[in-house]
């Protein structure tokens, strides 16, 4: 099976596309063009019929597709996750050249998770959230509420819009799960392991067609030493889009 016969996803992330992009394979969704980029016409249906998608291991008697993802999610101990995360931080630290690089790698790891979690949470909440969010405020409320609750078991604490800068929003979590068990030694400055969670948010936002960059900052308050602020900076193009659509 040569590589030509397989249709891969057209880009790693929707935020890399623009109006003038067209897919190499002749088939692939571009959110800037809309449904017409993905339409079934005589040419595209020819492409589809002659190609295959990536095939997975032969399905045995108990394949993963037979399992029900809508049933209750099992629990796992917090320490297993914390040990795994500890080791991830260590391994990333050994592979990276500085604090910025470390945060960037943690962000990348979280990014893939965010993309998948978005799909999962949406599928599970199907009745309440049967429509896709298209406004910035709606998607932020979704992330702050249902998304956070599904992943961490509680909603995030605050959602704020920055006063001075136009495109910035902030989600605040008083006790972030991942920072609970890491105390940063002095020579690491203001490293925040919540870069991982920031990656999760970024992945989810990008997959929902709201391209953004998300960074995590530790802003302790009295009584809440682990309080973290996730700074969400949306792309310029998003504001133009909002204005065009809703004003």
């Amino acid at each position: 099976m040569s590589n030509d016969n397989i249709i891969y996803p057209s880009v790693h992330s929707f935020s890399n596309l623009s109006l003038s992009d067209s897919s190499r394979t002749g088939f692939g969704y571009n959110p800037y063009k809309g449904p017409s980029s993905n339409a079934i016409t005589p040419e595209t249906s020819n492409i589809l019929i002659n190609k295959k998608t990536v095939s997975l291991t032969p399905t045995s008697f108990d394949s993963i597709y037979d399992r029900n993802i809508l049933k209750k999610v099992p629990e796992i101990s917090l320490s297993s996750f914390s040990f795994l995360f500890c080791e991830i931080v260590n391994w990333t630290r050994n592979n990276s050249k500085g604090i910025q690089d470390l945060e960037q790698r943690l962000n990348t790891l979280g990014y893939q998770i965010g993309q998948r979690f978005l799909e999962l949470v949406k599928t599970r909440e199907r009745i309440k959230y049967s429509k896709r969010e298209i406004k910035i405020l709606e998607i932020l409320q979704f992330i702050h509420g249902a998304f956070w609750k599904s992943i961490f078991g509680k909603t995030a604490n605050e959602l704020e819009k920055s006063q001075d800068i136009e495109n910035e929003y902030m989600i605040i979590d008083d006790i972030p799960l991942v920072s609970k068990f890491i105390s940063v030694p002095k020579d690491y400055g203001n490293l925040s392991c919540s870069a991982f969670t920031a990656g999760i948010i970024e992945g989810a936002l990008d997959s929902a067609c709201f391209p953004a960059t998300v960074t995590a900052h530790s802003v302790p308050k009295e009584g809440l030493p682990l309080r973290t602020v996730f700074l969400i900076k949306f792309d310029e193009s998003l504001y133009t889009r909002e204005n065009l659509r809703f004003n």
Binding site: V73, P74, E75, I76, S77, L78, S79, S80, F81, L84, F85, I88, T108, L109, G110, Q112, I113, R116, F117, L120, S150, I151, F152, G153, L177
Partner: peptide
Amino acid sequence: MWKNNVEKIQNSELFTLTYGSVVSQ
């Protein structure tokens, strides 16, 4: 011990997805 003594997180999928992310990386 599982019932009484262990602090749990609600979502084992976070754990599964984190591990998957690591393997693919």
